[in-house]
Design a protein around this nucleic acid. Structure first.
Lengths: 216, 216
DNA sequence: TCTCTATCGTACCGTACGGTACGGTTCTGT
DNA sequence: ACAGAACCGTACCGTACGGTACGATAGAGA
């Protein structure tokens, strides 16, 4: 049977899942090689054989988690205003749900905590493996809307970053800081709707117009 | 001479500054009690006497840093549209400058890294001592603009959070992750201007109107 | 059945850190 | 001048972690 399904064997993926569980539950300090070996019923020797060292394990955890949540691309066929708006709302909801997830928060905390050390590539890895997929999806979505004449912008990245800011605001950092009462999944829908409304005010094209408002 | 100027003696403040320096330079791992005692020419015994334990030291560092950057309140006298806009741009610039500062990033990384541990109050401390001042200033500013009829909103906090999102976008998290090429102080002015422009599009009141647009 | 490989469990090592103790020194108040 | 407090530098202790080594075990292939 072919065990080269992805990048790691099923056994290794199970260990990585255990590692993510330890990280979510107790933070970086709880993720020790001995503790992981005990929790996953494997030997420390195997950990070092598979992942090299502790940093390799952390990188593997990020890659493993990213491989699980593949960002899908909405192929916008028959894109009228209503469907486009619905797609934007879906994106906003998905973004809020991903960012407020336990594993996402734990991995971001881990990468941020290591960001000061010199040779740490965890932050870049997290952005590369996690964020770029989301960015691609949003970029394709915005581009489709622009080509249909539903929105207008000069710089797609700028428009996307503004959209991102309208959705996330300061929620991500506050969740990362562990502020009590910030993680309210029941409010995500309202936040997403409001962000999309505001995005259309800034970048929407009214009927009859061919270009959006200019700024600066 | 009275040494109760603030909360710590000058000697203790010098030690806390050294601690901040170590934290900025090498992250949390570089901030050891022995290392700080060596760098600050003090004894470990004094550190424990002054700050209790390591967590007390970290909390003291946050309090000390917050006491240095007291957020000023712009008393908006003679507030016409131009002056109000200038105040908003100033706020946006200050916010970007603070968030991208070395010490701010280091302390946020520290608090975020500790956020998973149970009894950690660093995140709450950071928000309470650092962010609330900024929030107060922005709240007063927005309220003054609303009373002059320059902007309109139903929920001041919501308007402020939107403004915050327009200014900061995802820059803060990316800087915290250490992404290369994100910290560009020379772009802050343009970002601030654009955010204020967009904020006025969303919440500004045109001449003759008495209420802003409604949403939802 | 025999052998080889991968893995497990455990023990081990060196290091580094948080926290404490103590002798010597400087400063302060009387 | 003297006593007391505060403080410095160093040594010390216990622990915990990253990483390595080793014997035991189980499964795959000839």
């Amino acid at each position: 049977m072919p065990e080269m399904q992805d990048e790691y064997t099923p056994r290794q993926r199970a260990v990585l899942d255990k590692a993510l569980g330890l990280l979510v539950e107790g933070g970086e300090r709880a993720l020790t090689t001995a503790g992981l070996a005990r929790a996953a019923n494997c030997s420390k020797e195997s950990l070092y054989k598979w992942f090299g060292d502790r940093d390799g394990l952390l990188a593997a955890m990020i890659a493993h988690q990213a491989s699980k949540v593949r960002a899908r691309i909405d192929s916008g066929e028959k894109l009228d205003h209503g469907r486009f708006r619905a797609h934007l709302v879906d994106f906003a909801n998905d973004l809020l749900q991903v960012l407020s997830g336990d594993v996402s928060l734990a991995l971001n905390r881990l990468a941020i905590g290591q960001a000061s050390r010199e040779g740490s590539r965890l932050g870049a890895l997290l952005i590369e493996r996690g964020r770029h997929g989301i960015d691609k999806r949003a970029g394709a979505l915005l581009e489709a809307g622009r080509q249909r004449g539903l929105i207008a912008y000069h710089d797609r990245d700028a428009a996307y970053h503004t959209f991102y800011g309208l959705i996330v605001r300061d929620l991500h950092v506050r969740m990362l800081l562990g502020e009590a009462g910030v993680r309210r999944p029941e409010n995500h829908a309202a936040l997403a709707e409001e962000a999309v409304d505001q995005f259309f005010v800034l970048f929407g094209v009214r009927k009859g117009e061919t270009a959006g408002r200019d700024r600066v």
